[in-house]
Design a protein around this nucleic acid. Sequence first.
DNA 1: ATGACGATTTACT
DNA 2: GTAAATCGTCATA
Length: 222
Amino acid sequence: MRARRSFFSADSPALAQRLLGATLVRVLEGGARLAGTIVETEAYLGPDDTCAHSHKGRRTARTEPMFARPGTAYVYFTYGMHHCFNVVAGEVDQPVAVLIRALEPTEGLDRMHAHRASGKRPARPLRDTDLCSGPAKICQALAIDRALTGIDLTTDPRLFVESPHPGPIDPVNLVNDARIGVGDADDWARAPLRWHIAGNPNVSLVRTPSCGATKRPRANRE
DNA sequence: ATGACGATTTACT
DNA sequence: GTAAATCGTCATA
């Protein structure tokens, strides 16, 4: 069932956990449906959060969607070549969001392979678990770019969320650790605001308990 | 107008 | 492990 406003109306850590096990659906022009189960998320907390685009309340053309209603899409372009997709949480004028970091692909895998391979030299075929194992990979596989930033995920036919089915993931099956790619400069950067489904092979990175180093998931290598 | 820098991915030593 | 790719965004002037 398509998630409605109330599903998104929560603080970002709560929504980050609630989104795990839900399905992200992208409908292309022409009607092709691409989808995957959300298996990894990160919460960004607004003006106080030094790692958030909305740090210090920064409100610009790029971050404007973060200030909109919960259930709004926030898509940004970075490193000159990648897009990342967020789901806006909280309430209007509260710039908090959840970064979708990894999916387990479930529908339209052929199309995802084509999107991920386009514009590259003939490399060996990607494994399904590498299709959406990172925030920019998701956007490439599902053809999500800035044209979709600011849209309402509760009504837009092109992109939406289906509630976790059969139900929310049991918290005991979630791993909670520090966000990726934000450095470790302060307590915000080290805060445990990332969640993923334990043992899922589609997750972007895993941290080894002993040294805290990040590595590709075991099932992703070889 | 200019310059520094990414909520990343990939390939290569 | 390290480095390159590549350009929109934002702060500074």
